[in-house]
């Protein structure tokens, strides 16, 4: 797989001194991968996302998109932002239009599409995400889950190559978490590169191809979920716990090599042992 996003020795500071929010970050993300970014609150995940979209300019280091160094002139930034979409954690910070339809059309029109093309794209995304029932509503009258769906539609309609979700399940009820996850699954099945920050270890373990652990602005580990969640040192350092599947498996099995990937596999293992 080709590397779609790479950063080398990336530093970023909000107050322009040596207090770095991102401190020598080195990582690479391959096209079509499902990446979970994990770490304690304030570890630099959201700052990293803003750097990826060129909203924050690193103090030092370089970011590469498709192996091309990101430039910070207006044209290059608009081009970059059309390829990397961010669904922000708080939908109220993202939705600023009076109605859902207007909100979704905003990004597409900024890409330079004509009115007719925009209408087609907006109607299409409304159908795909099944949000017809509230597409005529004002954004302030939506529930938290509906706002999140609209925030996702905002980005998807721009057809980005990478979509970043900043804690997509935060403050959502189980029904809307399920809806959002189904949307994410659809995207990953289409081969889109999805980067997501989350604190849900169970979901990250089952969903991600790779997990990147952030701690105090540094990447302390980038590896497969099983390597991350069986490493007690990094879990302690990032305030994370082992996923339920791993904890259960370790409590009933002496063989700590072939871990089940999800509850279904664990169930099969338990049934086989009971026979």
């Amino acid at each position: 797989m080709n590397t779609i996003l790479r950063c080398e020795n990336l530093y970023f500071s909000y107050d322009e001194n040596d207090n770095y929010a991102l401190n020598n970050v080195n990582l690479s993300i391959k096209k079509g991968q499902k990446i979970a970014l994990m770490g304690a609150n304030g570890s630099g995940k959201s700052t990293f996302f803003l750097c990826c979209a060129g909203i924050l300019k690193p103090c030092k280091g370089n970011l590469f998109f498709h192996n091309e160094k990101i430039k910070y002139d207006k044209k290059s930034l608009l081009n970059l932002r059309s390829k990397i979409g961010i669904v922000f954690q708080e939908p109220d910070n993202q939705l600023f239009c009076a109605s859902v339809y207007e909100e979704i059309s905003f990004g597409v029109l900024n890409l330079g599409f004509s009115e007719e093309e925009t209408r087609l794209k907006v109607d299409n995304i409304i159908k795909t995400l099944n949000i017809q029932s509230f597409c005529e509503k004002p954004t302030h009258a939506l529930s938290g889950g509906q706002k999140k769906q609209v925030a996702i539609a905002d980005i998807l309609v721009m057809s980005p190559e990478i979509i970043i979700f900043d804690e997509p399940a935060s403050s959502l009820d189980p029904k809307h978490i399920k809806i959002v996850r189904e949307i994410i699954d659809k995207l990953t099945n289409q081969g889109l590169t999805v980067i997501m920050s989350t604190h849900d270890v169970d979901y990250a373990y089952e969903w991600a191809d790779e997990i990147i652990l952030f701690s105090d602005g540094e990447v302390i580990m980038q590896s497969k979920p099983i390597d991350i969640f069986t490493n007690d040192y990094v879990l302690n350092k990032t305030n994370l716990e082992k996923p339920t599947v791993i904890r259960l498996y370790e409590s009933i099995s002496n063989n700590n090599t072939s871990y089940p990937k999800n509850l279904k596999e664990l169930e099969t293992y338990i049934k086989a042992r009971l026979k």
Binding site: L50, A53, I55, K74, L78, R81, S82, G85, I86, F88, E90, N93, Q94, F96, C97, S99, Y101, E102, E103, S105, F106, G107, L109, N110, L111, E115, T118, R119, V122, C135, E136, D154, I155, M158
Partner: peptide, 21 residues
């Protein structure tokens, strides 16, 4: 925050939006 999210969607100093038919 709203300004950041608008920038992330290629905002270029003009709010372009389309109302439903």
């Amino acid at each position: 925050n709203v300004y950041i999210s608008m920038q992330a969607r290629c905002y270029d100093d003009t709010i372009n939006i389309l109302s439903s038919k």
